[in-house]
C-alpha cells in the first residue's frame, strides 16, 4: 500500500428524527471537544474536509461533519421519497439535536455555515445549555432575497447547473481555482429540489428577527464570521445581527465569500484558528 490515506473516517449512524429512523452519514477526525460542522444549503459535509484533516485543530477537537438527511450520502427517510422536501426551523433543530444525542456528544461546539449559520442562532436562542460554544459562518437573523428560488427546481432548467451558477458569485474572486470548482461541484450534485427545500428554511420559515436579543453568550459563547464577498449574507447583515446580541463576537473575513471553509481553506484557517483557540482557553479557565 503506497497511496496517501487521509485521517478522516466516514461512518453511518441511525438517528431517530420526528419518529423515523434516518441513516446519517458523518465523517470525523481528532479527539477532544466535539466540534459538529453544518454544511450550507444544497451541498454536503465534504465542504469541511480541510478542517477535518487539520493536524492542529484535531489535536484538541473531535471534528465531526454530517450530511443532512436528503444531502450527500444521507438519503431521505424511507417514507419521504416522492414528497416535497422542505427544511424548517423545527426540523433542522431537531435533526442537529438528535444527531448529537445519537453520538452521545457532551456539550459539543456547533459551527454552521449559511443555513447552518442561521440555525446556530436558533440553537443559541432555544438550546444554549446543550452547547459549549456556537459559531455562525455567513450567519444573520435575516437577509434580503436576491433571486427567485423557483428557478432551482423546474424541468426545463438543469438544476445542478443553475444551482452552481447562482452560488458561484458568492465565492470571493481569485481564490484557489480547484477549491472554487470543488465547492461548485457540491451544488451540481444535489438532489432535485433540495437546495430549494433548504432555502424554505432560509427564506420563509427561519426569520429570526426580533428573537436574537435574548441570547445569553455567558451561557454559550457565540462567534459570527462572514466573508466580505458574501453578498447573500452580507457583512452588514451579520454585524447588524451581532449588534443586537450583547457579547457576540463578529468578524468580517477578507478575501472570502459564502463558503469560507471550502472556497479558500487556508484563508479561512487564519480566522477560525483564533476562535477555536478562544474556545479552548475558556475550557482551561
Amino acid at each position: 500500500m503506497s497511496g496517501f490515506i487521509e485521517p478522516i473516517i466516514g461512518r453511518y449512524v441511525h438517528v431517530e428524527i420526528d419518529g423515523e429512523t434516518n441513516r446519517i452519514y458523518f465523517e470525523e477526525n481528532g479527539s477532544g471537544i466535539p466540534l459538529v460542522c453544518l454544511h450550507t444549503a444544497g451541498s454536503d459535509a465534504r465542504q469541511w474536509r480541510h478542517l477535518l484533516a487539520d493536524d492542529e485543530f484535531t489535536k484538541h477537537f473531535r471534528v465531526i461533519a454530517f450530511d443532512m438527511p436528503w444531502h450527500g450520502k444521507s438519503n431521505p427517510p424511507d417514507s419521504q421519497y416522492g414528497s416535497e422536501y422542505r427544511l424548517t426551523t423545527a426540523s433542522y433543530t431537531a435533526t442537529i439535536r438528535a444527531f448529537c444525542k445519537a453520538l452521545g456528544l457532551d456539550r459539543p461546539v456547533v459551527m454552521g455555515c449559511s443555513i447552518g449559520g442561521r440555525i446556530v442562532l436558533n440553537l443559541a436562542i432555544a438550546h444554549a445549555s446543550e452547547f459549549r460554544a456556537l459559531i455562525g459562518l455567513e450567519a444573520a437573523d435575516f437577509q434580503q432575497p436576491w433571486y427567485d428560488t423557483a428557478w432551482l427546481n423546474r424541468p426545463d432548467v438543469h438544476g445542478g447547473e443553475v444551482c452552481a451558477a447562482l452560488v458561484s458569485g458568492l465565492i470571493a474572486p481569485n481564490g484557489p481555482e480547484a477549491a472554487r470548482n470543488e465547492t461548485l461541484w457540491g451544488y451540481k450534485q444535489g438532489g432535485p429540489g433540495i437546495f430549494k427545500g433548504d432555502l424554505y428554511f432560509y427564506r420563509v420559515d427561519g426569520d429570526l428577527r426580533g428573537r436574537t436579543g435574548n441570547i445569553d453568550v455567558n451561557a454559550c459563547p457565540l462567534y459570527l464570521l462572514t466573508g466580505e464577498y458574501d453578498f447573500s449574507c452580507t457583512p452588514e447583515d451579520t454585524l447588524r445581527t451581532a449588534a443586537g446580541i450583547p457579547g457576540a463576537k463578529a468578524t468580517v473575513m477578507e478575501r472570502l465569500g459564502h463558503f469560507p471553509m471550502s472556497e479558500n481553506p487556508d484563508q479561512f484557517r487564519r480566522y477560525i484558528a483564533p476562535v477555536l483557540q478562544d474556545i479552548l482557553d475558556k475550557q482551561r479557565l
Binding site: 436576491w146 428557478w151 426545463d156 432548467v157 443553475v162 451558477a165 447562482l166 453578498f231
Partner: peptide, 26 residues
C-alpha cells in the same frame, strides 16, 4: 463582483423573458 450582486445593489437590471439567461447563467 457578480452579475446578481450588481442587480441586488441596484447597479444592474435584469428584464424580459429570462429563461435563456438562467439556463446559461454561468
Amino acid at each position: 463582483h457578480d452579475l446578481l450582486a450588481l442587480t441586488k445593489r441596484g447597479q444592474a437590471t435584469l428584464e424580459g423573458e429570462i429563461h435563456p439567461f438562467m439556463t446559461h447563467l454561468q
